[in-house]
Design a protein around this nucleic acid. Sequence first.
RNA 1: GCCCCCGUAGCUCAGUGGAUAGAGUGUCGGCCUCCGAAGCCGAAGGCCCAGGUUCGAGUCCCGGCGGGGGUACCA
Length: 566
Amino acid sequence: MPDTRDIRLYLEGLLSQAVRSAIASGELPDVAVPGTAIERPKDTANGDFASTLPLRLARAAMKPPLEIAKVIARHIAADAAIDSPAIAPPGFINIRISTSFLQQQVEHVIATGPAYADITVGAGKSAQVEFVSANPTGPLHVGNGRGAAIGDALASALAAAGYRVEREYYVNDAGTQTDTFSETLYARYQQLFNRAVDIPKDGYPGEYMIDLAREIKDEGGDQFLRPAGEPGPTALGALGIEVMVRHIRATLKTFGVHYDEWFSEKSLYTPEGRFDNAMALLREHGQLVEREGAVWFASSELGEDKDNVVIRSDGRPTYYASDIAYHFDKFIGRRFDLVVDVWGADHHGHVSRLKTASRAVGADSEALQVLLYQLVTLKRGGEIVRLSKRGGEIITLDELIEEVGADAARFFFLLRSPGAQMEFDLDLAKKQSSENPVFYVQYAHARLASMLERAAEQGFSPDGGDVTLLTQPSELALIREMMRLTDVIETVAQTYEPQHLPHYAMELANTFHGFNDAFKQHNDPNLKVITEDVAMTKARLRLVLSAKVALARVLNLMGMTAPERM
RNA sequence: GCCCCCGUAGCUCAGUGGAUAGAGUGUCGGCCUCCGAAGCCGAAGGCCCAGGUUCGAGUCCCGGCGGGGGUACCA
């Protein structure tokens, strides 16, 4: 018998066998059969799975869809995993999973444990998810938090889907923003020694630059001070970046994000390094042209609106050039099968030309996926604040975590689809109350945990429970809901949209609460988990244990904790 | 101007071309002598406008309207 992971494939097999059988018997004309025939009906009253195949075949078969449905349904072989199929107008075949199959899934979930719902669609391919990658010229802000939550959950989902996943942060420690940062830092540093200097016009006005200068002064004294009027030492800028990266790492660690690789932009520029390699390759292809004293990538010949500068007339490479070299390293150097870049939507103008450039240096055209997330609007006390790193006042990710906690922040960030602008209501996220949906899910986990604990106190253990005793609608509904996690993981891995995780988590929690309170609703104490019926109690504890495993898994995928008590 | 994202319930948002469009929150009404009321059950309330494709459109296409973002030898 199949299990949760392959039930859909199994049913598709049964279905296509039935179609072949119907054709062989002459009851169905020999027509081409489209794939992906099994879906999930919205309303489970219509079954656990359904096929619209008859509707799709109707035209080619020249028969009414309902009639086709009848024929195919009749040819579906009897199988222990399903009850006999039903048909519904205008031409659905509805399939209900058998009770014994559902019961067995409790054992399946418990047996697979923390790996429950792992699937194999990734087929062991290597995938890299690069996310946040904010310039180390300031602290992470709330918008970066959205990128962090999305990227990390996506990476987890891809891993669950069977990819070998690496998480990466691209550190922009080269380029003009770094220079501006260094100049600002040196100005702040000099101010601490009572020199009357202003920060550069396009510099970073934020207060954190003063804190950073002070931190460096406290550690290193006046060693970076140069005679008045002279530029600051390059070592100061480098140290500033280093400290800033340290702060960013600390913030992300608090947020529960762990990277496999912190990739330095500067490392692309070693002699004969990636930058040289990538540019040499483009030059070989005749795709670099010199014009107006600068070097341009002839991207318009590859379908872009216009050419883009890769090396400025002053000899310094552009950000675009760095990114070409960086992606050359990802695809050609490190040979990732799939690369997902998670970017803020303000970078969207860059997507097309990066894809073009990646292809030009030899990457497979489908291998680069850029996931854009729209900007975050903050709301506090009804006031709407736009996020801007350049503006003096920002709300940092640290402050957000401090205020609402990492779990709540992650949940809220994930709840919205990346493509939608989101409003982050600080007042709501702060509330440690029932208005806050994040607690709903964690509360369910805590109740599952305490139920097992309470049972243990009374001498009951799930060990040896007989799952075939689980026949109540509320019990079977909970199992059905647990089974959906594999579908959710597959969807996230295919669409790169992790909002399905929190939504599923809420539904699973809701189904559990329904199961848990069924005895109240039906006013039937026999529906309680812990009763005097020892066999029934053990069976239900087994279900509770499996539900806890499933809920913990989805919380874990979202990077949230699964509390034993709250 | 051109390009991208978004318009779904009072509010914040889900919704792989399929069956009666969902959740949270808010409003109203029930439920603690009951394994955790951070909970459960119920009610009211909605697809921006106008065409098209399809057996079938919230979903795809065209055109409007509205909000946001981009269009640098910034990143």
